[in-house]
Amino acid sequence: MSITQEEKQNKIAEFRTSDADCGSSEVQIALLTHRINTLTDHLKQNKKDHSSRRGLLAMVSRRRSLLDYLKKTNYETYLSMLERLSIRK
C-alpha cells in the first residue's frame, strides 16, 4: 500500500525543478497524489477500513494546501501540475 523507494525516486526525478530538488511543492504534490490514488484503490476493496480513510482525508487536505500555495506563487506551474497528474477532470 505504501510507495516503494524506486517509485518515489521516479516521481522525484519526473517532477523536480532542479538536480538537487527533492522537496519542492511539485514533488510533494506528486508523491501525495500517488499515495492518494493507491489508498483510494485500497479503500474501494476494503470499505470498512476507517483508519485508512481518515489518513486519506488528511493527505487530500495536505495536497490541497500545497496546491493552494502553488496557485498563489506560480499559477502556470499549478495548471501544469493539475494537467500532468490529472487531478481535475
Rank of each mutant, 00 (worst) to 15 (best):
S65L: 11
S2K: 08
G55F: 05
L56P: 07
S2G: 10
T4A: 00
G55N: 10
E26N: 12
D68Q: 15
K8F: 02
L67V: 01
L39T: 07
L56D: 03
Q45A: 12
R16K: 08
Y69C: 09
L70A: 07
T40D: 03
S25G: 01
A13Q: 10
K8S: 13
K89W: 00
L39P: 06
I29L: 06
K8D: 01
Q45E: 09
E76N: 15
N37V: 04
C22M: 02
K89V: 01
I29F: 10
H50L: 11
R64L: 08
S61A: 15
I12P: 09
G23Y: 07
T33C: 06
L67Y: 03
I87K: 03
R64F: 11
S18K: 06
Y75L: 09
S51R: 13
T33F: 05
S80I: 02
L43P: 00
E26K: 12
T40I: 02
D21E: 04
L43K: 00
Q9V: 07
S25P: 06
Q9N: 13
K11W: 13
G55E: 09
T40P: 02
T77L: 14
E76T: 15
I29R: 11
M1A: 05
K11Q: 11
M1T: 05
L70K: 11
R53N: 08
D68F: 14
N37P: 01
M59S: 08
S25T: 11
E83D: 11
K72S: 12
L32Y: 10
V60C: 13
E83P: 13
L32A: 05
